[in-house]
Design a protein around this nucleic acid. Structure first.
Lengths: 339, 339
DNA sequence: CTTGGCACTCTGACTCACCGAGTGCCAGAT
DNA sequence: ATCTGGCACTCGGTGAGTCAGAGTGCCAAG
């Protein structure tokens, strides 16, 4: 009972603070939310909450603001993600449904997420590691130059130029192409190196050296390549944060320029809950102490193929953001299945 | 003589203002630059410059700052772009030389530009319109789905999935592939539609309808596609501007999210001078009134294939920026020629 | 356990005076 | 004609001082 009210107070504080971005006092709380008690009672609860580390004081005579720990408790309290309204679902479906291409899907998704949440959106391309090869193509671009095109079952396409030491005859190339496809098609990406292992053995003696060279180039191209791509959008919203709250956008912009950091933010999908929230320091990125990240995996739900999400100030509307991210992830999964 | 000194004064004002970002007064000017005259004389010149619209007053009792028109005159005065030092050239060459791919070249270039100028960098992929087709490939991804891959002589690769109404036999596909290549290879991109015109006529009656469908899809894919890509980097530097100068970064971030705007900023290469500078309103983009853009074309100098550049506050170091942009454009041209 | 009351604290806004940098102009020097 | 020193004037920014208001913490009573 008492515990219940304390939670309600924390909730109310978070909600008000998120709405106004100003420290919230005991009097304002009882006025806005109809907790049936007096400000003095709330003050006691607040003192208790502060002792437990869920809220703080900027100064002695100011209202309370939630700490990261407070947000965490608040978020954990949101057990089930609030579904979107029918209209919103329709809008999402319509907007994403028009996509013609994987690139198009990714581009639309990032714009949609940014638009829905009014925050910076991040969308990771389907991870090569977690998808299978649909088709491999070797194209002779010039005498000694091949282009390797790998098409994944997620619609993702990677290409890479390979330099050959000596020209490859069209016959050998065709043969190689066929064998390559036969051995890697519909295999998970991780099996590709194994699949290529002894492929060169099946060629005539005279071609072996050349084929081997090509194969090792293919292998290198396929493994060395930084195979994770992230697109982002909605950076405009950073400017708005700053107006309301003098948060340093510098570290945020820095983070956005580093692929590695972005991947870390998106990474480590938890299967247990559909949406992952990392608050402040939990991002474990230097400079993003007052930033939270909300992510969700997409692809098959048991085995997500990559993730997407948004990034915003710790005082964000977690409920709304979580439901938007969740909904978008679901629709992207659906679309990709269709393609 | 008198005119000469006025120009010198303008120059000095621009230089000081760029360095300090604070209105510069007559006294400070004579101290820093050794113009052999007294502050009073400078004041007269300043009054004249102000009449002509090259500088202004923020307030009655403040120093002068250059107007857009002042910057324009200043920039026009820089007749020849200052070359980079040997060390800088080496560094550029080394950094760009390691690129393995067109994507890699573009990525490295944008990072390099941002690094050198400490500003936001924009790099446009080689325009399809201004380059020629090297190779076209049609890959059967599934029964009714083809993937069209177009490889340009600039190293740019575009791919697009084409849906077919009915399955295409491997024979017809191979034939189509060969004929397609024969007719478009090494033709400028703009000629592709013409080249495809009557291609379907050469097929057997029974295949014609199908081939025609594919061809029109190819045509659509090739023309409808927004064929201009721009990569950008160095947005971190926006944060720095804002600290020193409360310029609104919101419109800048907005501009950076709009491909169309970016292309307009990069567009309209002037052949006459190697580097184009657009100052403040000259950008002709709403919201970028206190932003300047420095661009240069790359590719063959007579006929650039696309452009690159940087974007920064109107009070930027034009001389340094221009020479950096120029140098990078030259090296990118060189690298692309080699590929 | 809750409530009303009360003293206390601290911030933010406002005012006001002042300093100093910088200008414009004029009269005299070159 | 042009430059220079001098001088009065203007204004923005700074810092001190004041004040109101919001909010707290605590205590004693319900």
């Amino acid at each position: 009972m008492l515990e219940d009210r304390r939670l309600a107070v924390l909730r109310a504080i978070v909600e008000d603070y998120v709405a106004t971005h100003e420290p919230v006092g005991s009097k304002a709380l009882v006025e806005r939310h109809n907790l049936g008690v007096s400000p003095a009672t709330i003050r006691n609860d607040m003192a208790a909450l502060e002792d437990e580390g869920y809220i703080t004081h900027p100064h002695t005579s100011a209202g309370r603001i939630p700490t990261d720990r407070g947000y965490r408790l608040f978020v954990d309290q949101i057990s089930d993600v609030k579904p979107m309204t029918a209209a919103e679902r329709k809008a999402i479906e319509r907007f994403l449904g028009d996509a013609v291409d994987l690139d198009d899907v990714m581009g639309r998704t990032v714009r949609l997420l940014a638009q829905l949440t009014q925050q910076v959106a991040l969308v990771q391309y389907p991870s090569l590691q977690r998808s299978s090869v649909r088709h491999v193509e070797l194209i002779a671009v010039s005498e000694t130059r091949l282009m390797l095109v790998v098409i994944m079952d997620t619609g993702r396409v990677e290409q890479r130029v390979i330099e050959c030491s000596a020209p490859l005859s069209e016959d050998v190339l065709a043969d190689l192409r066929t064998k390559l496809n036969a051995s890697v098609a519909s295999k998970p990406f991780a099996f590709v190196p194994d699949a290529l292992q002894d492929l060169d053995k099946s060629f005539a003696e005279k071609d072996q050296r050349l084929v081997q060279a090509v194969m090792s180039a293919v292998l290198e191209a396929v493994t060395e390549r930084i195979d994770e791509r992230v697109v982002l959008g909605g950076t405009v919203h950073l400017a708005r944060y700053q107006q309301n709250f003098p948060m340093a956008i510098q570290p945020v912009l820095e983070a956005l320029e580093e692929q590695v950091v972005l991947l870390r933010l998106l990474g480590e999908l938890s299967i247990e809950s559909p949406v992952t929230v990392r608050i402040g320091q939990e991002t474990e990125v230097q400079g993003l102490e007052s930033t939270s990240v909300v992510t969700a995996g997409y692809g098959r739900s048991e085995e997500p193929v990559a993730s997407l999400g948004v990034m915003g100030p710790t005082h964000m509307d977690y409920a709304g953001t979580m439901s938007a991210v969740h909904a978008v992830a679901q629709y992207v999964s659906k679309i990709l299945k269709g393609q």
